[in-house]
Amino acid sequence: MDLNLRHISHHYDEVEVLRDINLDIRRGQIVCLIGPSGCGKSTLLRLIGGLERPTGGEVLQSGEVPEGCLNPLTYIFQDFALLPWRTVEANVSLVLEDHDLSAAAREAIIADVLARTKLADFRKAYPRQLSGGMKQRVAIARALSVRPAVLLMDEPLSALDSQTRELLMDDLVDLWEKEQYTAAYVTHNLNEAVRLGHRIVVLSRRPGEIREIVEIDMPLSDRRSDNSELEAIQKRLWNLMREEALAADRELLDV
């Protein structure tokens, strides 16, 4: 399934947050969205997934939804959004219970996604007993259980320490190698962007406009952190971002 953003603009009351965003998210691609904080990345992601209506423009979906897909547009949140009163397996079960599945089918899905995220031993644990990285893996397992067509991730690794972040980034790469999922991935971490993104969309400061789209052809599995080509791209992105951040600072002083 592809997503096409056509002339998306958005206001909160008087505040213009996004201006004329045109973007295609193609099947099997990870599109990273980066930009200074407050530029409207999270807002854009909410618009893409239908959690909010844009003031102007539209988000179109085209192409077939894959077989057995229960929730085409599925989020992974920065704060995990797990129900603290449900165990790991019950948190996954939550998003399956509204669908017409037999108990056995549901159980099979839960066992499968927990095995894929290496959580099989923690089925009966409550979220408070888990580390941040494990909580996010539960959230990833929950997202996988509905066989999404597009994953919408809002800074999924930002609440984690850097070692855990590396490990989970590897997991996301492995997973993509196996299943070629489609994703929109919001981050403020440029390293994550160059490691995971097939395309990197740089947004300007508020009101967010697309400043530049960087394509990286290198296969995800070849992207090591010491790769010089990636480092050059990361540096370019950094310069773009720094200009925006400096400009945003000056604007605040003017107000």
């Binding site: 997934g49 959690l51 229960l70 929730n71 547009l73 599925t74 989020y75 949140f77 704060d79 959004a81 129900l83 939550l94 998003v95 219970e97 509204d98 929950r142 509905v146």
Partner: peptide, 21 residues
């Protein structure tokens, strides 16, 4: 509110959101 939004994003019914979240 983030939990409620999570429920909506997975397409849970209104009743499920009230009962389970």
């Amino acid at each position: 509110r983030n939990l409620i939004r999570m429920g909506q994003s997975f397409g849970l019914s209104k009743l499920s959101i009230i009962r389970k979240i």
